[in-house]
Amino acid sequence: MALPVSTGKINSVSVIIDDVLWNGEVGDVLRKKLAAPVDGLQEEEPLFTLNQYSPKIFNSNVRLARNIVVISKAAHPEFKHVMDKYAVPQNIFYISGHNWNEIIETIELHSPTLTGSINYSEIIENQKATAKALFNDQKIRQKFNITVQIPEDFSYALLKHKFAWLKKDIPSGNSSLLIYQVPLSSFKKGSIVDNVIRIRDSIGKKYIHGMLDKSSMQTEESYYPYISKTRIDDKPAFEMRGTWELQNNFMNGPFLNYVIKDSPNRRYIIVEGFVYNPSSTKRDMIFELESIIKSTQFLKPKKNEAKIRNKAI
Results as ranks from 00 to 15, higher is better:
residue 67 N to R: 13
residue 306 A to R: 07
residue 212 L to V: 09
residue 292 I to M: 00
residue 293 I to M: 01
residue 96 S to R: 13
residue 150 I to L: 07
residue 295 S to F: 07
residue 47 L to V: 09
residue 49 T to H: 04
residue 254 P to M: 01
residue 218 Q to H: 14
residue 309 R to M: 10
residue 289 L to F: 00
residue 213 D to G: 04
residue 95 I to N: 06
residue 25 E to Y: 13
residue 308 I to G: 01
residue 147 T to H: 12
residue 51 N to I: 02
residue 15 V to I: 12
residue 113 T to N: 11
residue 224 Y to G: 00
residue 293 I to T: 00
residue 83 M to K: 15
residue 237 A to L: 03
residue 306 A to G: 01
residue 120 Y to S: 04
residue 275 V to K: 08
residue 177 L to D: 08
residue 152 E to Y: 06
residue 162 K to W: 05
residue 58 F to Q: 11
residue 227 I to V: 15
residue 303 K to H: 04
residue 187 F to T: 08
residue 304 N to G: 05
residue 118 I to M: 09
residue 118 I to R: 06
residue 236 P to Y: 10
residue 231 R to Y: 10
residue 261 K to F: 12
residue 262 D to L: 11
residue 210 G to N: 11
residue 198 R to M: 05
residue 135 F to H: 01
residue 192 I to Q: 12
residue 101 N to W: 07
residue 29 V to I: 15
residue 273 G to M: 03
residue 103 I to E: 04
residue 306 A to Y: 03
residue 205 K to I: 06
residue 155 S to Q: 10
residue 173 G to A: 06
residue 35 A to L: 04
residue 258 Y to T: 02
residue 211 M to R: 14
residue 157 A to N: 12
residue 144 F to M: 03
residue 177 L to N: 05
residue 280 S to L: 01
residue 176 S to R: 12
residue 93 F to S: 07
residue 107 I to V: 11
residue 169 D to F: 14
residue 59 N to G: 07
residue 214 K to G: 08
residue 206 K to D: 11
residue 5 V to R: 15
residue 123 I to F: 01
residue 170 I to T: 11
residue 197 I to A: 05
residue 200 R to Q: 14
residue 159 L to M: 15
residue 208 I to F: 09
residue 12 S to C: 00
residue 303 K to F: 02
residue 173 G to S: 06
residue 21 L to C: 01
residue 247 Q to M: 09
residue 286 I to L: 09
residue 279 S to L: 10
residue 236 P to H: 08
residue 63 R to D: 05
residue 293 I to G: 00
residue 196 V to R: 13
residue 263 S to V: 15
residue 46 P to Q: 13
residue 258 Y to S: 02
residue 155 S to M: 05
residue 282 K to I: 05
residue 230 T to F: 03
residue 130 T to I: 15
residue 125 E to D: 03
residue 86 Y to S: 12
residue 134 L to N: 10
residue 219 T to V: 12
residue 306 A to D: 10
residue 217 M to V: 14
residue 195 N to L: 01
residue 249 N to F: 10
residue 127 Q to F: 11
residue 243 T to V: 15
residue 234 D to F: 12
residue 237 A to G: 02
residue 156 Y to F: 15
residue 280 S to H: 05
residue 208 I to K: 02
residue 276 Y to K: 09
